[in-house]
């Protein structure tokens, strides 16, 4: 077990213990409060789990939840904040979202409704709860570079580097690490995946990419900010019989850990997040805010790096997704 793994697990345990003691010791309560929870979509594991974690914790703390779902449409997600504003909730937990939500956060702040974000740093948010995106970006950079022996051609799906700050951090630090590997070349132009229908879209784009880069001319495909496109990428590599190409991604949801755990899988490295704990931590922060505590602008929740098949199986079990054999 790597030192990173040990650190990550220690961090995980610490955060669980901390969360538990917070429930019991601090006597946090959201009783009598109505908390709006806005999530960009509930189709994907990450979004759904962060949402479920936030909702369950608000309810466990005695609060009432008003939930709105953007259906994986960023504009609908942004509009949903207007509904929370009109309904006069006591606080808003906003999960993901692009630049379209910023004016909505500002309007909520002006109306005296505190905004707590998940994976979306914003000047109008009291606190943003997120994974350690810096660690995610550098770790996946190192793992990918190692997996291709420190040199080769890499294609990257990177639609959100400029649009979402968390993706800017992850993809930016991945590139920062690769700058020290002069033998690694990132293919230009970078690919842009769809937000709503990512696996199927990435599958088609990968098949096109493979026809452009015949065997021996492409070494890795990386997904810069999340893991859904990787599902389609692996499918395309298997269809084309090109599983010598290495796949890396971030988020480490159960679907992609399962793919990594398969024998001979091209999907070799990932960094797993704990979306349920992130949502739950954000809800705890809302309660801390109402209890008069001063919150730091960012709360980081630990991540679990996943390097190779064996670690995929181990992390899958550790995060409570079940067992893979």
């Amino acid at each position: 077990m790597s030192i990173f793994r040990k650190t990550a697990i220690a961090g995980l345990l610490a955060s669980v213990v901390f969360a538990g003691s917070a429930f019991a010791g601090e006597h946090l309560s959201l009783s009598g409060k109505r908390i709006g929870v806005a999530v960009v979509g509930t189709q994907h594991f990450w979004d759904r789990e962060a949402f479920n974690g936030a909702v369950a914790t608000v309810e466990a703390l005695g609060g009432e939840v008003m939930a709105v779902d953007g259906g994986r449409d960023n504009q609908v997600h942004a509009d949903n904040h207007d509904i929370l504003l009109a309904a006069g909730v006591d606080a808003v937990i906003s999960i993901l979202g692009d630049g379209a939500v910023e004016p909505k956060f500002e309007a909520l702040q002006d109306a005296g409704i505190p905004v707590f974000t998940v994976d979306h740093p914003s000047p109008f948010s009291v606190n943003n709860t997120t994974s350690d995106n810096y660690y995610m970006g550098t770790t996946i950079g190192r793992y990918m570079a190692d997996a291709i022996g420190g040199e080769g051609k890499v294609a990257v799906f990177n639609a959100f580097e400029g649009a979402l700050r968390i993706c800017g951090i992850r993809a930016g630090l991945w590139k920062y690490v690769l700058a020290d590997y002069p033998g690694i070349e990132i293919i230009q132009p970078e690919l842009a995946e769809e937000f709503a229908n990512a696996p199927e879209d990435a599958r088609k784009q990968t098949l096109d990419l493979l026809s452009q880069y015949p065997e021996g001319t492409l070494d890795a495909i990386h997904v810069g900010c999340w893991d859904q496109p990787a599902i389609g990428i692996v499918q395309a590599l298997e269809e084309a019989g090109r599983t010598d190409i290495v796949v890396t991604a971030l988020d480490g949801g159960p679907e992609t850990l399962e793919i990594m755990a398969e024998d001979g899988s091209p999907f070799v490295a990932n960094v797993a997040q704990q979306p349920n704990l992130i949502g739950s931590t954000s809800a705890m922060n809302v309660a801390r805010y109402f209890a008069g505590e001063t919150l730091l602008p960012q709360t980081y929740v630990d991540v679990l790096p996943v390097n190779g098949q064996a670690e995929a199986k181990a992390v899958y079990a550790e995060l409570g997704y079940g067992t893979l054999d």
Partner: peptide, 13 residues
């Protein structure tokens, strides 16, 4: 105006 810009994926809804 609604989105303070253009976000991909608005057309389906």
């Amino acid at each position: 105006a609604r989105g303070s810009g253009s976000s991909p994926g608005t057309e389906n809804n």
